[in-house]
Amino acid sequence: MIEQLLPAGVSAVEAFDDTRPAPLFPEEQALLGNAVAKRRDEFATARRCAREALGALGFPPAPITAGPRREPRWPGGVVGAITHCAGYRAAVVARDEEFTTLGVDAEPHGPLPDGVLDSISLPAERRQLDRLHRELPAVYWDRLLFSVKESVFKAWYPLTHRWLDFHEAAVTLLPEREAFDARLLVPGPVVGGVTVTGFTGRWLVGRGLILTGIAVPARQPAFAG
């Protein structure tokens, strides 16, 4: 599914269960600590997806450790992202000579828990969600907004190594194209001499899931909205 959101040049591997978790390297085992079996299985499956995606680019199996925000640390020359939720795990990677950054997220296709929407959205976004709920009630737009902001953060963080709050990006959902624009409300990083002012991406709903994805080509580091 997730490959539908991403352009050629991005390697994507996904799994819908944990029947084939990968053996972990010691460095990866250390990241789990005393995690319960369910967490270990989902972690191992996501790492298998990542290794298979890297293998498609010609990289040999190697540990994929994590940084201070638990972001995956990729081999040199690679950008990528990992996501997982109930019933789904995926990894996407690409060469950094082709893409500046990637961000993906998966969520169950259901409403956000009570009280969460106000904490992750801006007033204008909530007005947009109200309209979309009336016009296209088959989609849980509040959960989609949350997923978009997760993808935005995953695309932002490797460029800045700084936190991005949910209220520091303003999202416009574009249902006619299954796409979105996310405008940064804080100063963005400078990439290739151009200031990044936001991100564009795509989304889809299927198999009880919401998936969102961002892929910024290396020759187009800035938001073009």
Score class of each variant (00 low, 15 high):
151 S>E: 02
48 R>N: 02
33 G>L: 05
31 L>G: 01
77 G>I: 04
181 D>E: 15
80 G>M: 05
223 F>P: 07
92 V>H: 00
154 K>H: 00
31 L>C: 11
69 R>M: 13
30 A>N: 02
116 V>S: 09
186 V>E: 05
67 G>C: 04
219 R>Y: 01
52 E>G: 01
188 G>S: 05
141 W>C: 07
167 H>D: 14
89 R>T: 10
6 L>T: 08
152 V>I: 07
126 R>Y: 05
216 V>R: 10
74 W>A: 03
131 R>P: 00
170 A>F: 12
108 P>M: 13
121 S>Q: 07
60 P>K: 14
87 G>R: 09
211 L>N: 04
72 P>N: 02
96 D>T: 14
87 G>K: 15
130 D>K: 13
177 R>G: 04
56 A>D: 09
108 P>F: 11
181 D>I: 10
96 D>V: 07
223 F>L: 15
151 S>L: 08
198 G>Y: 05
12 A>R: 06
123 P>K: 13
87 G>T: 11
92 V>M: 04
60 P>Q: 13
198 G>H: 07
168 E>Q: 15
170 A>M: 12
137 P>T: 14
174 L>Y: 09
1 M>E: 09
91 A>N: 03
24 L>Q: 03
152 V>P: 01
77 G>Q: 01
144 L>A: 10
51 R>G: 02
134 R>S: 12
61 P>H: 00
68 P>F: 00
213 G>D: 11
84 H>T: 13
13 V>A: 05
112 L>Y: 11
163 W>M: 08
156 W>E: 03
116 V>G: 06
77 G>A: 03
198 G>K: 02
71 E>T: 00
72 P>F: 01
